[in-house]
Design a protein around this nucleic acid. Structure first.
Lengths: 186, 186
DNA sequence: GTCTATACAAAGATAGAC
DNA sequence: GTCTATCTTTGTATAGAC
């Protein structure tokens, strides 16, 4: 049940954010009473923290899976971008940490840290891949630092998710994605 | 007083979002009772709609002011990007419509339309400037369409605002900004 | 582990006095 | 226009029975 709660909370928050979703929403879908959810997560913050940890560990697994499956930087980057495409094509959802970052001011200090680690994790991974791709002559950063390009890719993807969803325009995301590749492709 | 309410609501929402701010918050700062705010804006949605209209008209004025002051596309673009830098350097704030877009699922249909018009307004302006810059041989879009580049600039800036604020790292925004220029500079 | 019941606070909103 | 007072609903949370 604990896992079911986390999975559902993830979906609901990716749609509405942390402030607009409630234990009642969870209870309605799961067919239990909201008091029962407090058994697993006494405070909402407990749930949010565990959720971000869960989400981050999923990402971590995904990123290391990529590196094992395909050893070519360009293919690894493709897999990474495909992950974002998946979020964009799932109706009405954003990246969990992207939507939470928009609410960051209203969240607890510990939760903020966890969210920030999520971004740093991606940035670090991107830098690594970009450097590998450059060394292997697969990428061309056109004089920019891997650091700058990594940050820009991350920002573009997160921003594109938000705007594309708002506009109900999946092609918005796709166009940005295509343009993002220009930052590192030869 | 109506203007004061709008100005304050703008600040509060740019920090916390529409769902996490209340009439009580406004009343506390303005030194009046929350019932008094209902006199100006019977429903919260009324306030939000008028606020987005207000914010969009400010943007519209700003964009046409740019075009009158400096007639060079590259300088106009600089002014536009400076506006975003201003948001990023104002502690804890995002673009009003950026933060609302993150909450879009929880907002009224009319409000959604207004928010979307805000993005379209910027995109349209960016396309125009990019095309002018290309014609004047000031910009180089490297084979990409003005449309794609405009969407990417918009997404990058909005995403960078969110992440930079979350990380408490103004340099994150600055690095992305520098990289964004690579999309159109010669 | 899930329930009922309940406490407590906050939010959006309205009525009517001044 | 602003106030007091009040209503209604919702959200977070806890106590204690089963």
């Amino acid at each position: 049940m604990k896992t079911k709660i986390l999975e559902l909370a993830k979906d609901l928050i990716q749609e509405s954010g942390a402030n607009a979703f409630s234990y009642q929403d969870l209870a309605n879908v799961l067919g239990i009473k909201k008091a029962s959810i407090h058994y697993y997560f006494p405070h909402k913050d407990d749930l949010l923290i565990e959720l971000v940890e869960f989400y981050s560990s999923e990402l971590e697994k995904f990123l290391s899976m990529i590196s094992k499956t395909s050893s070519e930087p360009d293919l690894e980057m493709d897999e990474y971008l495909k992950m974002y495409e998946g979020i964009s094509s799932s109706e009405n959802k954003l990246c969990l940490c992207g939507i939470l970052a928009g609410e960051i001011v209203t969240l607890s200090p510990l939760l903020r840290e966890k969210i920030n680690k999520f971004f740093v994790l991606q940035e670090t991974w991107l830098i690594k891949i970009l450097m590998e791709g450059e060394s292997a002559k697969k990428f061309n950063l056109k004089g920019a630092s891997p650091d700058s390009v990594a940050k820009t890719i991350l920002a573009s993807l997160q921003g594109a998710l938000v705007i594309a969803r708002s506009l109900h325009d999946p092609s918005f995301f796709k166009q940005v994605l295509k343009q993002v590749r220009e930052n590192y492709e030869k």
